[in-house]
Design a protein around this nucleic acid. Structure first.
Length: 261
DNA sequence: CGAGACTTTCCTGATT
DNA sequence: TAATCAGGAAAGTCTC
């Protein structure tokens, strides 16, 4: 690692992780389940919009729900607003995923400090969604199976992925940053929205963020870009010749189009 | 355990 | 010169 390369990264991160974002990102203790992905120390009432977004992504990751399953713009709010949402609000905003989010935030509100989501409860909800005949939900939850909204969205293919190691794929991670510009502090931007062309503005910062997600502090743009190049063959991305840091979504990339939902 | 998907890591060489 | 791009090769990490 040369001095110049690290200072490049520093300058990118300084811009990205401005003082409003504080992430206790010290040495992570690898002790199983979500501890490594659950780093919100403060109460959700005091979260920034960006922290709300992170919480959202983490809950989705933990349950291997594709982020495009819900309109993320419905959660363009800070922690205070988030905490004031009712169960019905969550249903409206996130459909079938609403109950999962509602329970997560309820737990966090009650505990006041970092608490892990309860996977058993969630698996109950998930199985309830898949097998509506079963009726064994926690007492405080609205009967999930009775919601037509849930049935509709889950029959649409919003299901847990079969093979999705470590939750989100790289291209989905990139896509989700693009789709949330208000929580994307100048990392990547659309060059041609309808064609799916985008450009990395802060390549090393994006790599750091990706590494953070994968719990890999040594991620670099060099390595991230190798993974991106593998997407060409699978037509998840198309080559954009002659333009540095520019990529284009391919025919096998889903969920990035404005009209697609 | 094995296979396969999806990276991650490393590398050599070319291009901007 | 540094940053980026191109891919080959092989290892690592998951899920099924």
């Amino acid at each position: 690692m040369s001095i110049t390369s690290s200072s490049t990264l520093d300058s990118q991160l300084t811009t990205v992780w401005s003082p409003t974002h504080s992430y206790p990102d010290g040495p992570l203790v690898m002790s199983g389940y979500p501890s490594r992905t659950w780093q919100h120390e403060s109460q959700p009432q005091f979260w920034s919009k960006f922290q709300v977004w992170e919480w959202l992504q983490q809950v989705m990751d933990i349950h291997q729900i594709d982020a495009s399953s819900i309109p993320l713009q419905n959660f363009d709010m800070d922690g205070h607003q988030l905490c004031s949402l009712s169960y019905q609000d969550f249903l409206r905003a996130a459909g079938s995923v609403g109950p999962i989010l509602f329970h997560s935030i309820t737990e966090l509100k009650w505990s006041g400090r970092s608490v892990r989501p309860t996977p058993i409860f969630f698996s109950l909800i998930i199985s309830e969604i898949y097998e509506p005949t079963v009726n064994t939900l926690a007492p405080d939850a609205t009967p999930v199976s009775s919601s037509p909204d849930i049935k509709r969205s889950f029959s649409r293919g919003h299901q847990v992925k079969k093979h999705n190691p470590r939750g989100t794929h790289l291209w989905e991670f990139i896509r989700d940053i693009l789709l949330n510009p208000e929580r994307n502090p100048g990392l990547i931007k659309w060059e041609d929205r309808t064609e799916g062309v985008f450009r990395f503005l802060k390549s090393e910062a994006v790599a750091q963020l990706w590494g953070k997600k994968k719990n890999n502090s040594s991620m670099t743009y060099e390595k991230l870009s190798r993974a991106m190049r593998y997407y060409y063959k699978r037509e998840i991305l198309e080559r954009v010749d002659g333009r540095r840091l520019v990529y284009k979504f391919g025919r096998n990339a889903r969920g990035w189009r404005e009209t697609e939902k």
